[in-house]
Amino acid sequence: MTAEVKGWCPGAHRPMASGDGLVVRVRPFRACLTDQQALALCALAEEFGNGMLDLTSRANVQIRGVAADRHQDLLRALWDIDLLDADPQTEGRRNILMPPDWVSGDQTYRLHDALAKAIPDFPDLPEKMGYAVDTGRSPCLSDASADLRFERDGDGHLMLRLDGAAKGWRIDERNAMSAVKDALLWFNATGGKSAGRMARHLRQVSLPDKWQSCTPRAVTKPLAPGRDNDATTFGVPFGNIPARDLIRLIQAARLTELRLLPHRLIRVATTVPDIAPFITAPDHPLLRIHACPGAPFCPQATVETRDLAMRLAGSVGGTLHVSGCAKGCARPGKADVTLTGRSGRFDLIRDGTPWDPPAAAGLLPHDLPDLIGTA
């Protein structure tokens, strides 16, 4: 069976059918949920879905298992709590990553809102394309999935960089959206749509020299679980949260706001004690493990994934990706060890992606511990 690569991600207006119902993706504005919005989402997951919330690698939240005949009711509920764009096309294209330290009215906040307003006027683009506003106190989004990046150069000036390029160009906030639009028009004019993403396009096409004049700040502290500066960042195994556990966290810690970060992380502006299943240890082995829902929850998967990934968590020193099919939804990049489901068995790929040639094929689960231990 060949995996069907959709070329788009589910949204709220445009959900994706899965083995357990519709997957409805919610894109919180500025990647932020108030406590009331988060509690309401938990209630909606229990009323309309399977009682779970999924954090995505691009800082969104998904409700799974939604019945098709209840989708419109769910949309109305999301609108009531200010988690839905009125325009389906805008909602589907509003892929904007935010750093954790923005404050209302600062430049990061203003750039986000300018982007959200300008997106309907941008040219037609592949639907997975997105933006990172990495203009906080220190850069932290350079390894997250985005195609155009607002950053700062070594002197602290605002710059725009296209993903896949080492350098970008200095811009002024007043012309930031016109700079983005120029870059997107160039992307389309040079055949970028066929590549699908900016970094993939730049492997085939040379970037104009005028857009390669300054270097972004180096990342000194990547995003990771832990406690610092009176804040707590949580990781969640596979990004999969029982709604009742998130309710317990919000109420126990008296949270007023949750900020969603790439890599399925949540940051709150207070120091919170450990509460299962949330992880605060940056080196926890489960945070190196990536697995999609797998069978029977995804119709393209032919293997169970997450229970297997949990059993194998201690067997790999680096990253492990267990993918139900060759699409690689849980981790689109390389992993030290990747297991790809194929016709009920597994392919083993070392230092690669689910669609790379395997080092071994046709493996059963009991074959795997010894084999991956040698990776």
Rank of each mutant, 00 (worst) to 15 (best):
L287G: 04
D172Q: 10
I275H: 09
D87E: 04
G314C: 13
V205D: 10
S206P: 15
G235Y: 02
T220F: 03
L141F: 03
A68S: 05
T220W: 02
T56V: 13
P285I: 15
A183L: 08
R149L: 08
T34N: 02
G362T: 07
G362C: 07
L33S: 13
L75S: 03
G156Y: 03
T271L: 11
L207D: 04
T56P: 04
G294M: 10
D82R: 06
M159K: 06
D113F: 01
D163C: 10
L41F: 00
V180W: 12
V316W: 05
G164Q: 11
A195C: 07
A12H: 05
V24H: 01
A360D: 01
L255R: 12
W102N: 01
T305N: 08
D87H: 03
N188M: 11
K6S: 15
C140Y: 00
G49C: 09
L55Y: 02
H13C: 09
P237Y: 04
P285E: 13
N188V: 15
T338N: 05
P369C: 15
S145M: 15
A86K: 08
F29L: 14
A59N: 12
T232D: 11
L78D: 00
K193N: 12
Q72A: 11
E47T: 15
T270L: 13
A132V: 02
I250P: 02
A189C: 14
I171F: 00
T34Y: 06
G239C: 08
G362S: 07
A253T: 00
P273E: 13
S178W: 11
L39G: 01
A295S: 10
R25P: 00
T56H: 06
G344P: 04
I247H: 05
T340W: 03
P277D: 08
H263E: 12
A360P: 01
A118E: 04
A43F: 03
R311A: 04
A276S: 07
A146C: 14
P10Q: 08
A361H: 01
P357I: 09
R227D: 09
M1F: 01
P354I: 11
K167H: 08
H201C: 06
A269F: 13
H201T: 08
L97I: 08
A12P: 11
D351M: 09
P365H: 04
R345Q: 05
S138K: 09
C298H: 08
G192H: 08
R244H: 07
W169Y: 05
N50P: 02
R311T: 06
L111S: 01
H366C: 10
F29S: 13
D370E: 15
P120Y: 04
K6F: 15
E4C: 09
P296D: 03
D73V: 05
G318Q: 07
R227S: 09
G373C: 06
T319A: 12
A179F: 00
D367S: 06
E151G: 02
F187N: 10
R197Y: 11
I275Y: 12
T305V: 14
M310T: 07
R217I: 00
P354S: 15
D245P: 05
V23T: 04
G294D: 11
A43I: 08
D134G: 05
T256M: 09
H71Q: 01
H366V: 13
N229E: 10
D143M: 10
R345W: 02
A12S: 15
D347V: 04
P120D: 08
